[in-house]
Each structure stands twice: as C-alpha cells, then as structure tokens.
Amino acid sequence: NITNLCPFDEVFNATRFASVYAWNRKRISNCVADYSVLYNFAPFFAFKCYGVSPTKLNDLCFTNVYADSFVIRGNEVSQIAPGQTGNIADYNYKLPDDFTGCVIAWNSNKLDSKVGGNYNYLYRLFRKSNLKPFERDISTEIYQAGNKPCNGVAGFNCYFPLRSYGFRPTYGVGHQPYRVVVLSFELLHAPATVCGPKKST
C-alpha cells in the first residue's frame, strides 16, 4: 500500500531547467500520482495528452512514469508532439509516433530571460542525422557541412553544433522561453508502482 505522493513538484518547480539538447529525465516510481494538482495549476500554456485522457489519469496505474524537462522557445512547443519535424524534434528531443503521455508547457519569461540576454539555454542546430525517439545527444563535436574534414576547428563550413537562445524579456511570445515537462507513461508486464489516488488503496 503506497502512500507517499509522487515528487512532481520537484520537477515542475525546479529552480533551473535543462537546455533542450541535454534534456533532463527523472524516473518516478513507487508513489501516488495526483495529476489533478498539475491539471489545476493555472499558468499552463499547453497540457496535451496522447493515448490517454488527462482527466482519467487519476484512475490509472503505470509501471513507471518518466518526467523529461527542458526549455525551448514558445514557437517550438508545437514540435513536442508525435510525428513532428523541425530543429527541436529532429536534433534535440524526439517523441515516438506511438507516444503515451502528456506534454505540459508554460511561459517562463520572468524566470529564464535576462536584460542583455540569458545565454545559458542551448539547443542543437546541426546534426548529421535525426534523433531516434528519446535519444539524447550531448556531443559538442564540430559539425562538418562541406567535404573538408574540420579536425575539431570551427570555421568555413565547420560549425559548433550548439546555439544559444539568448532570451531577453522584451522578445515577442514566440521567442520567449517556455518550460516543458513531458510525462511518459510506461506500461510493462510488471507490477504497477505509480497509481492515481483512487487506485492506491
């Protein structure tokens, strides 16, 4: 009989979020998941679920829940969905086509923008091939755009693969920082350890 609540607040209220190319993952297990707390949290810009209804989450049990978190621009949030393409979905964070879970995003301009620009948040701009679902690539190898080998030196046709967002408070909404948490639900042939409040007695 599990009684402790799942530590969703640790994920959602973290002081610093990860850059999207180096997205953070927390495994959540052996706890009671009260999703209504999240669902009623006012400032969400997006709360979209795939393969599961957000209002039914509290009735369900899962083997594991993974909480992935990172920061992207407002106009990139739409790429955090199954079957998407674009710089983020291709080179930074890719969801599987059969994704079961929820994508939760909110504007973090007050936290993550600075006058003069916040350059701490990076994304991958160049990559030889697209990421596989949930693949994480933190390499900083110089990207070779031409035929000539770069030998690890940036220059003509040789690019550092990461780019900084440089968030400023005055940017338009599409270019403002958004914090994103992706909850993915794993249902294995194993005992369920993460259940909603109704199922955990």
Rank of each mutant, 00 (worst) to 15 (best):
N30W: 08
P149G: 13
V182C: 05
C61N: 13
N118K: 05
G117P: 02
V182A: 05
Y119E: 07
P54C: 06
F45H: 15
N30A: 09
V77L: 15
F99A: 00
T55I: 10
L95Y: 02
N13Q: 08
A192L: 13
Y119C: 05
Y50P: 00
K110H: 13
T193Q: 13
N58C: 08
D97N: 13
N58V: 09
R25P: 00
L188G: 15
T63K: 14
Y178F: 15
I72Q: 02
G51R: 12
G116T: 10
D97I: 13
T63L: 09
A14L: 06
C49Q: 01
S69R: 05
R127I: 01
D34A: 06
I2S: 14
V182S: 03
P149R: 10
P197W: 15
V180D: 00
A18N: 14
V11N: 03
D112N: 02
S113F: 02
G155M: 06
D34H: 07
A42Q: 14
E76T: 05
A22T: 08
S53T: 13
N1S: 11
R124G: 00
R127M: 03
F8G: 04
I80N: 01
D90S: 12
F47A: 09
Q84Y: 06
K148W: 10
R179S: 00
F167H: 00
K132C: 07
I88V: 10
K26Q: 11
S164G: 15
L122I: 14
F12R: 03
G83T: 06
T15D: 12
V65P: 02
C49Y: 05
N107M: 04
A81N: 05
K128P: 15
N120W: 08
A46Q: 15
L183W: 04
D137C: 04
A22K: 10
F134R: 08
D68R: 03
Q79G: 03
N58A: 12
R27Q: 13
V77T: 00
F167S: 00
R73I: 04
H189W: 09
A145G: 10
Q176A: 04
A46N: 13
F45N: 15
H175C: 01
N147T: 06
F126W: 09
A154Q: 14
F126V: 06
A105C: 09
C158W: 03
N87V: 15
Y143G: 01
V52C: 10
K148C: 09
L60G: 08
L188W: 13
H175E: 06
L125K: 03
V194C: 10
S184C: 10
T15W: 05
R73K: 15
W106T: 06
G166F: 03
L57H: 06
V77Y: 05
A89M: 04
K26V: 14
C158V: 02
K128Y: 10
K199V: 14
G101M: 01
E141A: 11
R127H: 05
T100N: 10
F41Q: 13
P43V: 06
W23L: 01
P7L: 08
A81W: 07
L38Y: 05
L38I: 15
V77N: 03
R25M: 02
N1M: 10
Y93T: 00
L5M: 12
P169D: 04
A192W: 11
G166L: 04
G86C: 01
P161G: 04
N130W: 07
A89S: 00
V115E: 11
T63W: 09
A18D: 09
C6A: 06
I72S: 02
S139P: 01
V32H: 11
R16P: 09
P96C: 05
A81M: 07
E135P: 02
R73F: 01
G116M: 08
L125N: 05
P197F: 15
I72K: 01
V20R: 02
N92K: 03
S53F: 08
P169T: 06
W106D: 00
S108D: 00
D59E: 15
F47L: 10
C61P: 10
G146K: 02
I142L: 10
Y165K: 01
K132L: 12
A154P: 11
C158M: 02
G51D: 06
K128G: 11
S69E: 02
N92D: 01
S129A: 12
I88Y: 01
G86K: 03
T201E: 13
V182I: 09
S129W: 09
F12K: 03
T193I: 10
Y159F: 03
